[in-house]
Amino acid sequence: MNYINQGEKDTRSGFGDALLFLGKTNPNVVGLCADLTGSLKMNAFKKEFPDRFFQIGIAEANMMGIAAGLTIGGKIPFTGTFANFSTGRVYDQIRQSIAYSNKNVKICASHAGLTLGEDGATHQILEDIGLMKMLPGMVVINPCDYNQTKAATIAIASHEGPVYLRFGRPKVPNFTPENQSFKIGEAIVLKEGSDVTIAATGHLVWEALEAAKTLENENISVEIINVHTIKPLDEKTILKSVHKTKCIVSAEEHNYLGGLGESIARVITQNYPCPQEFIATNDTFGESGKPHELMDKYQLNSVAICNSVRKVLKRKS
């Protein structure tokens, strides 16, 4: 199947549009924001449902606690702030009041990773997937484009339990189907191939598709899996693929420590050991720059994926 860029759109707008849809279709859905309503694209929800929108101010710890409390009484709270302030800043609040308390809170995090851009490392969290996947019971989702973020946002409202939904700031190719159904924990094989598996999440999924074009010209048959749900990980789909290809490259906009790649490594070492290469940041903080400049500098792009594929193929043979 060919995936065509239907136009550049930001994933956070997928979240905002879906939240508005949920507002209309599910009266229990409420929104909370810590002074970033515009950045999170929550303005439409706020305008349409002022009684169900809570402006918390710059107080993320309080926001997480209030969200936990709102579930007591049947509400489904969606919290919105940047990924850094959605996780690292409030880790213990999430751990005790939400995860350990098994509260039905949807932690929605924008501006994740390097593609936040010019604001620099204080705001570019590259550790959030690791932080959140370590919490028992927490679902961790990182959709790849506008359409998928919209579908994921709608899907998590029907999931009972805490969810971390990670998305981003920049406009990126929108290429997955409009109005797709989103199944938590079911990875999607975007392209079948036999030489190598690329398991990508978030913004790196499009880069993997781009990489495949180059690699096909080198007669390398690439299988691409969109691992939108990092936890629970779709072990079956990944293992089925590596049984065929016998090597894998993982790709994510995150530190390799604690990221998708490490989750995959655990699965393949336990079940079907084979060579793996990691596209991820190398235990470093980010810095200021334009999103694409940063992705180039930190080698989170299709060129880097191609290089890792060539390397992993050599290791296989």
Partner: peptide, 30 residues
């Protein structure tokens, strides 16, 4: 209704529960 022990978190939860009561037109108290 919620875990506690790591200090300083209960008030926020009680605030959230009070807000839920308002939304539900529930006249009881948090």
């Amino acid at each position: 209704r919620v875990a506690s022990g790591s200090l300083g978190q209960g008030l926020s939860v009680a605030v959230g529960a009070a807000l839920a009561k308002k939304l539900n037109n529930d006249s009881k108290i948090s």
